[in-house]
Nucleic acid binder design. Sequence first.
DNA 1: AAATTCACGC
DNA 2: GACGTACGTGAATTTA
Length: 879
Amino acid sequence: MTNKLILIDGNSIAYRAFFALPLLNNDKGVYTNAVFGFTTMLLRILEDEKPTHMLVAFDAGKTTFRHKTYGEYKGGRQKTPPELSEQFPLVKELLDAFNIMHYQLNQYEADDIIGTLAKHGEKQGWEVNVISGDKDLLQLVSNKVKVSLTKKGLSDVDTYTPTFMEEKMEVSPEQIIDMKALMGDSSDNIPGVPGVGQKTAVKLLKEFKTLEVLYENLDKVSGKKLKEKLENHKEDAYMSKELVTIECESPIEISLENITYNGYEPNQVSAIFKDLGFQSLLTRIEGDVTIPVEEKEELSNLEIEVLDKVEDNIFTGVEAFEVEMLGDNYHLAAIEGFGLVNENKKYFIPTDVAIKSDAFKRWAEDGKYKKWVFDAKKVTVALLKHDIQIKGIEFDLLLASYLIDPSENHHDIPAISHRLGQKQVLFDEEVYGKGAKMKVPEFDELVNHITRKANMIYLLKEEVEKELEQNEQLELLKELELPLSIVLGEMEALGVQVDVDRLKHMGEELKERLQTIESEVHELAGETFNLNSPKQLGPILFEKLGLPVIKKTKTGYSTSADILEQLQNKHEIIPKLLVYRQLGKLQSTYIEGLLKVVHKDNQKIHTRFNQALTQTGRLSSIEPNLQNIPIRLEEGKKIRQAFIASKDGWVIFAADYSQIELRVLAHIANDEKLIEAFNNDMDIHTRTAMDVFHVEADEITDNMRRQAKAVNFGIVYGISDYGLSQNLGITRKDAKTFIDRYLNSYPGVQTYMDEVVQEAKQKGFVTTLMNRRRYLPDITNRNFNLRSFAERTAMNTPIQGSAADIIKLAMINLNEKLKEENMQAQMLLQVHDELILEAPIEELDRLKEIVPSVMESAVELSVPLKVDYAYGKTWYDAK
DNA sequence: AAATTCACGC
DNA sequence: GACGTACGTGAATTTA
């Protein structure tokens, strides 16, 4: 195998990186853009080229041997900006971490070092690749030596081989020197021959091959003026030649053996990336960053006191507290026991002992006694069922862990503990088993497990809070998520009243209609089959009935609604299938699904809001999901008639933010036009249509508005041109045109989009209004898909996440306000941009004031927030 | 039990 | 120019 030598022009690449990337600094206030760009280039080279030898050469200082020839060499050059010069030491540190040799030599330039080593490598028959941004180096190109020059940005390079050179430059590598001698180089202050630029130089060299031949045959040069100039500046030309010629025999003190490259130590690189704040590059490190191998640690003995009675004096006022339940539906599960840890002792309190104890209740309900818990909402709901209203929760390990990194999949106590190096706790699976085999272990083991969990909360609180503090997220936890979790707990525990009879009635009706359609479809298909099976349906549609295949999935034909819609008129079976799908969905998911989760005792549904799941900061809702109850199609919307107020004379009251995401966008992008549109309370989709289609309001057709709406939708959800094209049934190219026109119309938005992506590249994450974070390691991935996805996420998450922040704050404030005003009205649900409450009719007038005003004033943006509301006997009627 | 496909909301 | 492309939950079917 031949050796492969990579020679990098350090100064040149650092310069390119510096000017290609915006000037951002890391958390320590140090500028790192050049280092960052340098690093991405380095990683790319290592991944692609797999060099065996490597060196980064730097210029040594102000004067070089060339100054003796020409005092004005590189004169008049702009001084290196201090923001860049301070980054050179960092680049060298970085190279050290990569175990890459770097070198500079007094009186010589990086070019000379590179030239010298390139010749050495060439002589050995090695493959040599020179990387720079400086065209002068092209003179080194040969059959063995390739030169890669950075193009505009950093990611793109042109690699010059002798053939590519002839093609692109129209001269040979040797002629580069003569060309430069003739044309000069203003950036290096090399005179050349005045009036001779690249064009003329190339023309001359094509004819005469070398500078020497040219001057020997000066009389053959056509053009009187040109001849004169050449004659008068002969000396300049020869001197210039000397200046641009790379010294390939510079007295370097290193040799090829010194610069073998044996790869880097992942840990060292990881350390410096973290130090520089290059989170996003951590994933590019090849090889394992040895997270000291997760070794199974024996559990040491833990001194636990199992209480048979709770005394007031066991509480210190600061305790970690774990409420353990088996299975995750805390509305149904029984409490297995409590763990309690404070600075003095570790206790296990059996469920009965605690809930029957006045002392326990006194402690729990007294806000002066501070509690550190895992999942404040679960704790709140679980205790509420035993008539205990817990107060004084001041730390929640679940929420903290989520805020630190929402992309982490496992936010349970053992997983978090192990991540932070605390191993003295088992995973639930180890204790309880999993799946069908899940069961409560014997008492001692249970006591141990639960108390250890409480102990972990106690041990980790400080460290986790410190990290939040460093990320400026402590307020987000203490003032937003934690108070919200209490509010959510109350909402969940209260539950939503369901009209079960109505659901059942709808179910019976549906059942009949479904049966009718099913037999009709079987009739049309000429055979019976399972309508719910795409696998059976596919062959019938596309083989037996011969309908055109529009799209395939990896296992067969696609039969999704958008495909079927395109086949609407091809066969009468299609519309029937579509109705069947629609009704079937209602039946299985919404009628049967909801009936399954209605609590028998009170005919209420108690959903659970997952507050530590989504990547954007939104809530999700499970068992059942009450955030996707049908609304678009009338048939489905009727499901909402089954959601009713819990008392006679009460109503459902729903309030929703109008265009909150686009308002947030107007604010954070600070886009003049968008801000103006909202300040004038314009119809935003119409406004967008005017801007995208360049027409007046009265010329806008329904279709134009529909398309504009889809574009806005795309902006808010960060969809791609492909997504938009699917959405509108247009080509990707047209979709891209729409997006481009949108961004041209709103330059503030364009700038924001560019900046937020750059910021994500530098920092590795994006943030929302209230400092929620989302890490985007793929933002520098070289896989186009992954990178594009990360880029869209970078643009979208601050928008959607900030909207989530705002409604969360509004919920806390509204809850507060309702209590303050002694209202009976209660929040029931949150559906991303809307709040659903129930309230006595008598409170309606006040609610109409309070709810919108609290929601609208949650934060002050550069545009107003607008809230619409409606109410009625059922959720359906609150429209 | 896990993967696949489909469909509902924002 | 290719790549497969908003986030969630849940149902039914199929595969393993």
